[in-house]
Design a binder for these strands. Structure first.
Length: 345
DNA sequence: AAGCCCCGCAACCGCACGTAG
DNA sequence: GCTACGTGCGGTTGCGGGGCT
């Protein structure tokens, strides 16, 4: 025996609400409160089903609803919570005062999701879409160096190891074997093999793993809840098993960092200048000794570096170019000469 | 100016879950 | 345990506005 529908469709209005209907609903709720949505429309003189009334009230008419554009902080919160909770819009909404699950869901689907896709990030897993990375070309360039270990910065080896460890290329036995030979002389495993951390400091120096807060251990990071915060060495960070990040300027949303008078997204394909579609390693003109690895950007929009921290002067397009996610970022300090892989061929 | 297309968002739909009788 | 009810939730739809040709 199936349950009866929430309302009889016959004679009940559907579609957009009129101001008169809104007023009736608001007046009734102000006078009698809400609850028992099935009988409410009849008592309020509305030709609507209770469900429709409830939706209208909770998503639009409720007095505590905050309307208008989402702030950067709200966006960051949504992205972060989504990386933890998935499509639990009501749970996410409960942490964003004044925002409804419907509003957040719409905003996700129309803005954030598309943005992540453009950035080469899987909006479901919040991981870079490594299937888009042409790691084989990178590896091919490195692997036929005569003495690669003598020339490569250990950080670069770490980077390559990390990337290969995540990439489906590892399923290729031949590549896997080569890689094992390649790194066998040194233990270059990342300190956090399952969770890569953005590492940088306020003065543009890369923060070594050893400078993580001394009382913060790997196991704690990996097992901590994703909303665990720690503060040490004047840095503020957030530990997240699904989308770890480590940021240092508590005035910035966690997806931004500051370097050489420019703000950067965690994702290197958002930095200025735009990345090439084909190369994997890019030198950053603005910070001469940084290398960023990104998934290819599919954004057709030009990028600029004039983003002003968090104010409302930027256009929506500008915002879209800069808003990032709390995802993994690879950022390593590598001498310029090492950037030219061909120099070792 | 008209037609078309795209996109954002409000609203709807169907299912799940908790609870009372 | 079964049924009906009330409500919550996530996915989807479709309207309307704006931009483009």
């Amino acid at each position: 025996m199936g349950r009866t529908p929430c309302c009889e469709k016959n004679g009940l209005k559907k579609g957009p609400w009129t101001p008169e209907e809104d007023q009736k609903l608001v007046d009734y709720i102000h006078k009698h409160g809400y609850g028992n949505w099935r009988t409410l429309p009849k008592n309020a003189g509305l030709q609507r089903c209770g469900k429709s009334c409830r939706l209208r009230w909770t998503n639009y008419l409720r007095p505590d609803i905050k309307r208008g554009r989402f702030s950067f902080e709200e966006e960051e919160t949504i992205i972060h919570l989504h990386s933890i909770l998935g499509n639990k819009w009501s749970a996410i909404a409960s942490r964003l005062p004044g925002r409804t699950d419907n509003e957040i869901k719409n905003y996700w689907n129309t803005h954030i999701r598309k943005r992540l896709l453009r950035m080469g990030i899987d909006p479901v897993t919040h991981n870079p879409r490594l299937d888009l990375l042409d790691l084989s070309s990178l590896y091919g360039s490195i692997s036929h160096m005569q003495h690669p270990l003598h020339h490569l910065n250990p950080e670069l080896l770490k980077l390559a190891t990390s990337l290969f460890s995540q990439n489906s290329l590892l399923n290729n036995n031949n590549l896997n074997r080569q890689q094992n030979q390649f790194i066998s002389d040194d233990d270059v495993s990342l300190p956090y093999p399952q969770a890569q951390f953005l590492e940088y400091s306020n003065n543009n120096n890369v923060v070594d793993s050893s400078s993580y807060p001394s009382n913060l251990h790997h196991d704690e990071l990996i097992s901590s809840s994703s909303s665990d915060y720690w503060q040490a060495n004047n840095n503020v960070g957030i530990a997240s098993t699904s989308s770890p990040y480590y940021y240092v300027n508590d005035q910035l949303p966690p997806s931004y960092y500051y370097s050489n008078n420019n703000y950067y997204s965690h994702h290197a394909n958002l930095v200025d200048p735009p990345m090439s579609e084909t190369s994997t390693f890019h030198s950053n003109n603005n910070s001469s000794n940084f290398v960023s690895v990104s998934t290819p950007s599919s954004s057709p929009k030009p990028l600029n570096s004039s983003y002003v921290n968090g104010n409302n002067s930027s256009t929506e397009d500008e915002r879209e170019s800069y808003v990032s996610t709390n995802n993994t970022v690879f950022r390593f300090e590598i001498p310029d000469m090492l950037l030219d892989v061909n120099a070792f061929v």
